[in-house]
Structure formats: C-alpha cells, structure tokens
Design a protein around this nucleic acid. Structure first.
Lengths: 152, 152
DNA sequence: CTAAATGCCTACTTATTGAATAGGATAAAG
DNA sequence: CTTTATCCTATTCAATAAGTAGGCATTTAG
C-alpha cells in the first residue's frame, strides 16, 4: 500500500494538470474537492514544488500550476518523492543501494533474482506511464477535452 | 521495501526447500547461516507453520520440513502472510477491499487505473513464481543437484 | 494603503508498525 | 531425566504515518 500522502499527491497533480493551461488551482479547492485535510495537503504541494514539478503563485488569485509538462512526470518519479526507493529489496535499489545483512552471495541470491523480476515488471509501468498519459482517455480529462467529447 | 521479517521468511523457506527430502532443518542452523536473530526467526517459522506451509518436529533431531511441495508455494502467497495485502491501493485489493476516502469515482479514477496496471504486472511475477522455481537453476540448488553439476 | 486571500515554514502530537528481546512452557530422543 | 529442539506470549525501543497547529510572507483587489 502506498501512503495517503502519496495518493493525495497524485490526486493534486492530476487536478492541476487537468486545469486549463496557465490557470492556477488552489490547495483549498483541491482539499475540498477530494476531502483531503487542507494543512496536510499544503505540505504535500510544497514537496511537489520543491521537487520542481509544480510552480506556485502566492496571494489573491494564487495557487499551483505545472512547472514541467504533465507528460514528462512519471508515476514512479512522484512515488519516489514521497515513499523513497521503490525497490523491494535494498540490494535492488540503484539510487540507494544497500547490502542485505542476511545475504551470503548477492549474485546468486534467489530472493534478489525473483524480486528483481517483479520490480522490473512494476517499473515498466510506473516509470513509463505519466500524469499526462493518465489524463488522456480519462473520463474526466481536461475541461476543454470534456467539452470536445460532448460536442463531437 | 519488504520487511526484514518477510525477507527472513524467504531465506528460511528456500533453505528448508533446498534440503534433502525429509531432512529437517533447525531454526538455529538457519539463523547461524544467514545471520538472522534466532528468536526472531523462531516467530517467523511459527507463522509459516501456522500458514500450513512448513511442518515442524520438536525435540532432538527436530526442525522444519516443507508441508506442501515447494513449487506450490508462490512468492506472493508468502509475502501476503507477512506484509498483508500487496495491492498498492485499498481499492485494488480483492481480499481486503476498502474505498479510498479521497475518491470521487472509483470507476474513473486515474490513480486506480495506473496502479492497477502496475499491480497486475507485479502480480504476474509474484503469484506465478514459486519457491520451487527459484531453486531450479539456482547456483545453490539442492545439495544433490550441486554435486550433479560438478560431476557433469 | 489596507485587508483579505493565498502560499510558506516549522514544530508538535498521536497511533501504529517494525524489529527485535526476553523468558519460559512443552515435547521428543537418547 | 537431561538435552535439544519447538512453541507461545509479553515487552521494549525506534521510526514512520498521518495529521494538527500556529503563525509568517506575499500578492492583489478595492
């Protein structure tokens, strides 16, 4: 299970990414819409800004906008911000490799081999699918897309 | 990251499964071999026995043996014993489904859809690969297999 | 210029979980 | 009847999850 924090982050990101270009979305609006504790969400949005994914505007008519295009932000990248390494074993993480204390021979470790497969399979999804992908073909989509669909 | 507990469980299971048929392996032996806290490992082996995966013999010349054949025990099954549901979201778990508090429409939730893909990919490995599979082609293998290889 | 609305930042709390540690009870073999 | 194992329960300690709280800083509408 991923943490609530991470889930809220995705909820917020998808909302900001789906908003019309250049239009800022406030933390209060997101919190209200998805029933997320407001102050908690603020911390999360702050993390996303520090990670260089969101940009923010303060004061009246402030809020959050995408800093990078939504289709350059993968689910894996976001997840790592809030959950740390996604690898199921320390010895499988490239970013923060650590030997397992109970490991005799890493090269011949069956646990490592099998979880390596699982990790690869999972990464093939998480590191390729982006926030943008998720919104394309979404029932929500961006507002203008929704109207497009109704019109067509 | 999976817990130490789960990793120790795999270590123990692979060891017992690799032992010659009918030969019991003691918790002390496993603990020594892999540098696992003995008393902690005892609890883990107990869980595996209660789950119907291992059988145990008490007293002198006691220890643990497989209750079910190693190739009927999947990595996913073992993992679930120690980690609970593997689903990344409560709404994706069949065993213990729970709605996300911040969900507006489950059927149209992009987060659910994308993590569903990741979960499927991961399960395709974890729920098909077994302890037996992992030992086949293993550099360790079972003792008699190792000798076979050296001989051939 | 001022007030209101918004984001920014830090500290604190509370409950749960992970990772053991501890101490003995029970059973089987020799 | 002693040794060697498993079996069972309780306790500890640290880290993490999931918020709560309170105020500072900035922008803009009036």
């Amino acid at each position: 299970m991923i943490s609530n924090k991470a889930r809220y982050a995705f909820r917020a990101l998808l909302t900001v990414a789906a908003a019309p270009e250049g239009e800022a979305v406030t933390s209060a609006e997101i919190a209200r819409r998805y029933n997320i504790p407001h102050k908690f969400l603020e911390q999360i949005l702050l993390d996303l800004r520090k990670a260089g994914i969101l940009d923010s505007r303060r004061g009246k008519s402030g809020g959050y906008v995408m800093l990078r295009p939504a289709d350059t932000v993968s689910f894996g990248e976001v997840l790592r911000i809030f959950e740390g390494p996604l690898a199921p074993l320390p010895c499988l993480s490239r970013q923060s490799y650590r030997r397992c204390e109970d490991c005799v021979s890493e090269a011949q470790c069956e646990i490592r081999r099998e979880f390596g497969r699982a990790y690869d399979a999972s990464r093939a999804v998480l590191d390729t699918r982006t926030i943008g992908d998720a919104l394309t073909n979404s029932a929500y989509g961006t507002p203008w897309r929704r109207e497009e669909r109704q019109a067509g």
